[in-house]
Amino acid sequence: MLKENEANQGEAGIAEDTLLRTIEKFNVEYCLALDEGRLYDWANFFTQDCRYIILSRENFDAGLPVGLVYCEGRPMLEDRATAILETSMFAPRYLRHFVTNTFVHYKEGDEIHSGSNYLLTQVLMDKPNATMHQIGRYVDRFVHEEGVLKLKERQCIYDNLLLENSLVYPV
């Protein structure tokens, strides 16, 4: 593994480093939008023809496509934002995302294949503790759109198969 990434040596290494930092920054802003409940902003992190899927590791490993959330195209993300903000009934809660171990896997044309680990905590108003609502990883495909990094695909693959009651907000 290390060999491939032979860090910091040539120019390629430096470029990769910059890219990594760009993706990390992207994730920070992405999570900020979600943690603050700005769901329409969240949709803007994606390309028009994106795919966004939250699926269990069980399904992912077995090649089964079903996702807790399954969106094809940004309009579906926006519809989800509308549904959550306008129509859905659920108990009030705070969510917080923690993203680590970001890495760039490989580039293919102008697509960047990368990934990270994520941890999603949830706090309900009548309980003192935050629960680890999801633990998983992002499997991403990024592209640049007019110089701005966007997600062409994000799969959120969670390890804790047994979800606690409900998942309200995107991951």
């Binding site: 496509p65 079903v66 959330v69 399954y70 969106c71 579906m76 129509t87 009934m89 659920f90």
Partner: peptide, 25 residues
């Protein structure tokens, strides 16, 4: 894919499924 897209209605993160789970809690 249509089944999968429509699947957003149901399940614990579905537009309907989530509400039922919350209400029962």
């Amino acid at each position: 894919r249509h089944r999968l897209r429509q699947g957003n209605l149901m399940g614990p993160a579905g537009f309907l499924g989530m509400e039922d789970n919350e209400a029962m809690k």
